[in-house]
Amino acid sequence: MRLRRTFRMALAIPPLLAAAACAPQTSAPKLGNTPAASVPLAPAASEPTARQPRTATYKCTDGSVMTIENLGTSVRVLGPDGTSSELPASPANQTSRYGEAHDAIVIDGREALVMKGGASPLACKR
């Protein structure tokens, strides 16, 4: 009886070891089992996204021109008519989405999407 059990275990162990060796062994963090300190908070330097300059002028599809001044935790939008409005980051740790109430701006590289309450979204480029 003992010999039969040993023989069955000897037949079962090699396929199990082979299956374990075939499992991917990556060092990529798995969702939910990494400490918060090891998760990068900023995009890598090799990513192609351009960082928002301190002050940039955008030409919009409707022919207007606007200047967006990046203040860090908010942006100041200077319209073609001289009016200005300040929009905080939304959520607070964002560097590309700004807005409050019914107005918002999403900055993506050299493009900005401007949304004002009651009006169609407006695409603009630097």
Rank of each mutant, 00 (worst) to 15 (best):
R2K: 00
L3E: 09
R4Y: 13
R5F: 00
R5K: 05
T6S: 09
T6N: 13
M9P: 08
A12P: 07
I13H: 12
I13R: 14
L16F: 13
A18E: 02
A18C: 06
A18F: 02
A20W: 01
A20Q: 02
A20M: 03
A21D: 02
A23M: 04
T26F: 00
T26C: 00
A28H: 10
A28F: 10
A28P: 02
L31I: 07
G32W: 15
G32E: 15
N33P: 02
T34V: 15
T34G: 04
P35N: 05
A36I: 13
S38V: 11
V39Q: 09
L41M: 13
A42W: 12
A42I: 12
A42E: 14
P43H: 11
A45C: 05
A45K: 12
S46L: 05
E47K: 01
T49C: 01
T49S: 07
Q52K: 02
Q52R: 05
Y58H: 02
T61Q: 03
D62A: 01
S64H: 07
V65P: 10
M66N: 04
N70C: 03
N70G: 06
N70P: 06
N70I: 03
N70L: 00
S74C: 01
V75W: 03
V75K: 01
R76P: 07
V77N: 04
V77R: 06
L78C: 01
L78V: 05
G79S: 11
P80M: 12
D81Y: 08
T83P: 01
E86Y: 10
E86L: 11
P88C: 04
S90M: 14
T95S: 05
T95I: 06
S96F: 13
R97C: 14
Y98W: 14
G99F: 02
A101H: 15
H102V: 05
H102P: 01
V106T: 02
E111D: 13
E111Y: 00
V114A: 05
M115S: 08
M115P: 06
K116M: 11
K116C: 08
K116S: 08
S120V: 12
A123H: 14
A123R: 15
C124F: 13
K125C: 05
